[in-house]
Structure formats: structure tokens, C-alpha cells
Amino acid sequence: MSEPVLELRGIEKVYLRGEAGEVRVLDGAECRLTPGEMVALVAPSGAGKSTLLHIAGLLDTADAGTVAIGGTDYTTASDRRRTVARRRDVGFVYQFHHLLPEFSALENVVLPQLANGVPRAEARTRAEELLDRVGILPRATHRPAALSGGEQQRVAFCRALANAPRLLLADEPTGNLDPATSETVFDALTRLVRETGLAALIATHNLDLAARMDRVLVLREGRLVPQ
């Protein structure tokens, strides 16, 4: 069996919310993702999907439990080690693309690589390859405002994969798109995951898209339950 790309064990997270007191969002959540696997994360709004993704991606810390990426336990790692791991091993995609408006599609994919020390020529070549894989290389010189919603989100996928991470975390990546565009974007995402062999955990309300992934995990009462 392949070593898990992501392993969450016994994840707990509690928030203090005014008069409501303690709200236990995660209560022993556990999962394992292996290379090349697409896993859907399904739950009602407010159930803790985003919190779980932030903990898995080392953007937040759990109150209890362990988080391992690529076999390395980052539960008690320093902020610096977590930052390095995020930059090297994790790609994020959100419902809204968050592209830098003053830069072209190509530049938006190049910049994360430059920040990671990749030479400009090499970064440009990889950016062009990724944009070509999702079918928008002809739009590479356009700024985000000149791109459609589906094109913007495909650029966001490419940016998330620019530094060849092990793990992709996506929070409602098609939630802001119409059904036809969602299909196009999801197909592009699937192609990228299959071709690169990374592991992807994708939060979605779209049950049709969820059913097309390898597995579906439902976040219920703070735990992850296979569907």
C-alpha cells in the first residue's frame, strides 16, 4: 500500500462563540489520502469543512489529534516548518479564484514558483505546461478580468499546482460557477490530479461531482464518515 499523502488522526477543534459557549466543530475526525486519489468532502454549510481543510493544510492547528503529510508529523512543528511544508507540499484552491488582478494568467502561475526559488525560465515553462493541460494556454497573456469564471478557476488550479505539491485541498472550487462551467472546470481538475499523481481532498456541495470521485467522506457531528 502506498504511503498516505495526508493522514489525519483524532482531529478535534473547539470554538468559543459568545453565549453559545463551546462549539465542538471537529470531534475525532480521521482520514487517509493516497497518491492519485480524489476524495470528496461533503457536509452542510457551517459543519466544519473549511476548518478541516485549514487544519489539513497546516493553516490552522487542531486542539487535539495529529496531522501528517508525506509521512511527516506536523502536529507540533514550528511555524517556520509548517510554512515551508505548505509552500512545498500543499496546494490550495478556493471558491473564488483570488488571482492577482495586475498580473496575467501566466504570471499568476509563475509567481509562486519564483517565491519558491525556481529560476524564471523554468517557472515559465512549467506554467505554460500547466495552462496547456487545462486548455487555456492561448489565454495566458490575459489578466483575470479578461477571463471567464471558468478560465479564472482553471488558472487558480494551475497556480495551486505550480510548485508540484503532494496534496491539493479545494474548498468548493466549482461553487461559484454555473453547471456547464462546473463540468468543464471539474474535468480539468480531474485531469490534473490523474496526470500528476497528487492526492486531492475536495469540499463540495455538488453531489453529482462528489459521486464521480474515488471516495466520498461526509462530515457528520465532527467526524468523517465514508458514504
Rank of each mutant, 00 (worst) to 15 (best):
S182C: 04
H205S: 05
E122L: 15
D27C: 06
E3T: 14
N206C: 03
A164P: 01
T76Q: 15
A43Q: 04
L147I: 14
A29T: 00
R215D: 02
D73Y: 15
P173R: 05
R88D: 15
C31G: 07
A77M: 11
L100W: 12
K13V: 01
G222I: 00
G197C: 06
R139N: 11
T174M: 09
T51N: 08
A203T: 02
D208I: 07
V23F: 02
P4N: 03
L26Y: 03
V23N: 02
A127G: 15
N176I: 01
A29Y: 03
R87W: 08
S2T: 07
L33S: 04
R159W: 02
Q153V: 13
T75V: 13
G175M: 02
D73M: 15
L207F: 07
N116S: 15
L106S: 07
I202N: 00
A115P: 05
H54P: 10
L59K: 10
V216H: 00
R9M: 10
D60I: 12
V93T: 09
V218M: 02
A121L: 13
C31S: 06
L130Q: 14
R82F: 13
Y74T: 11
D60G: 11
A68R: 14
H205F: 07
F186G: 00
C158M: 09
E30L: 08
L111D: 07
A105G: 10
A146T: 12
V67Q: 09
R120N: 12
L16K: 08
L8P: 05
A29K: 02
G36Y: 05
V110M: 12
E107I: 05
G65C: 12
R154V: 11
E12H: 14
R24L: 07
G222C: 01
L168G: 05
L189A: 02
D73Q: 15
E19V: 07
F92T: 10
E3H: 09
Q95T: 12
V93Q: 09
G46S: 05
L100A: 14
L161R: 01
E195T: 12
R32M: 10
G70H: 11
N108P: 05
T196M: 10
S148M: 08
S104N: 06
P226L: 00
T61E: 15
Q113I: 06
H205D: 03
A211F: 06
K13S: 01
T174G: 03
V67K: 07
Y15M: 03
A64C: 09
R88A: 14
V155D: 07
G135Y: 10
V39E: 00
H54T: 11
T125W: 08
R126D: 09
K49F: 06
R166N: 08
D60C: 11
C31Q: 06
P35C: 04
A62K: 08
R126L: 10
